[in-house]
């Protein structure tokens, strides 16, 4: 499997898109830090990059790559390799490449301009969301045979997690405005990795406001080590589950 990761990684790095993506992240982050007069405003810009651009690029790039790698997969499937290992290798190769891109594109500017807790939380969130959306991409590529359908599904997933879901939650919130909704909201936030990442960042960037509004429950939850472990466990589940589902489906897929 290590060899497969190696070859996927080499192949992705040879293809210019990931380099362009790294540069794009780098240019955006750098310019945010250089143009904004305070670091916290730059961090807010980066928050938007992290919760919109990073998932979008991750899921689209990985889905397209999965289709383009079909030759690679076909070539290797006839070789004595376990199928699950093959796809896990492809997934980990994708994750590794996105990890490197994010680490360079966002990590370096953060290390230079904002090497504090909020900076590292941002970097961590960006890497986690890249992984989660690579995982979802794997699933959408394995589920659909047709490239256009697969990319459509990927786009839909992204749109759902970044816009539709929050719209629905807002609607639910106002429908049930008379009931205590804090715990429900906490649960709902766990069902969307983007929300989870965003809230982790809010607790860094808007801590003062967060303390005021949802007060105790939030501080107790995300302030305690159990809360952090729970949130981290949840995001790890988001990284693993779709990929596992995809690998399981791939095991019985006809090529």
């Amino acid at each position: 499997m290590k060899k497969i990761i190696k070859y996927i990684l080499l192949d992705i790095l040879r293809n210019k898109i990931i380099i362009a993506y790294t540069l794009l992240l780098m240019v955006i982050s750098m310019s945010l830090f250089l143009l904004e007069d305070n670091a916290s405003k730059a961090m807010l810009g980066l928050l938007n990059i992290t919760i919109i651009i990073v998932p979008l690029v991750s899921i689209i790039f990985c889905t397209i790559y999965m289709y383009n790698a079909s030759e690679f997969i076909e070539l290797l499937i006839a070789q004595p390799i376990r199928r699950t290992k093959l796809l896990t290798g492809v997934y980990l190769g994708l994750v590794a490449s996105l990890f490197i891109a994010t680490l360079i594109g966002i990590g370096i500017p953060v290390f230079i301009y904002s090497p504090d807790t909020s900076g590292f939380t941002l970097l961590f969130t960006a890497i986690a969301l890249s992984t989660v959306f690579a995982s979802l991409a794997l699933l959408s590529a394995v589920m659909t045979r047709d490239k256009a359908k697969g990319i459509g599904l990927a786009l839909l997933l992204w749109f759902y997690f970044s816009f539709i879901y929050d719209g629905l939650v807002l609607m639910i919130l106002f429908q049930f405005a008379d009931y205590p909704m804090e715990k429900t909201m906490l649960a709902l936030s766990m069902l969307n990795p983007i929300d989870l990442g965003r809230i982790l960042l809010l607790l860094q960037l808007d801590i003062s406001a967060m303390m005021g509004f949802t007060g105790a429950l939030f501080r107790d939850f995300f302030g305690s080590s159990q809360g952090i472990i729970f949130a981290a466990g949840n995001i790890i589940l988001w990284m693993i589950l779709p990929a596992l589902l995809a690998i399981n489906k791939f095991k019985n897929k006809d090529l």
Binding site: N48, F163, D166, G167, L173, A177, D206, F213
Partner: peptide, 14 residues
């Protein structure tokens, strides 16, 4: 009006 909505702060839809 609805303090819990703070959780959706800075969401793209907001």
């Amino acid at each position: 009006r609805n303090a819990t909505a703070m959780m959706l702060f800075r969401s793209p839809i907001v």
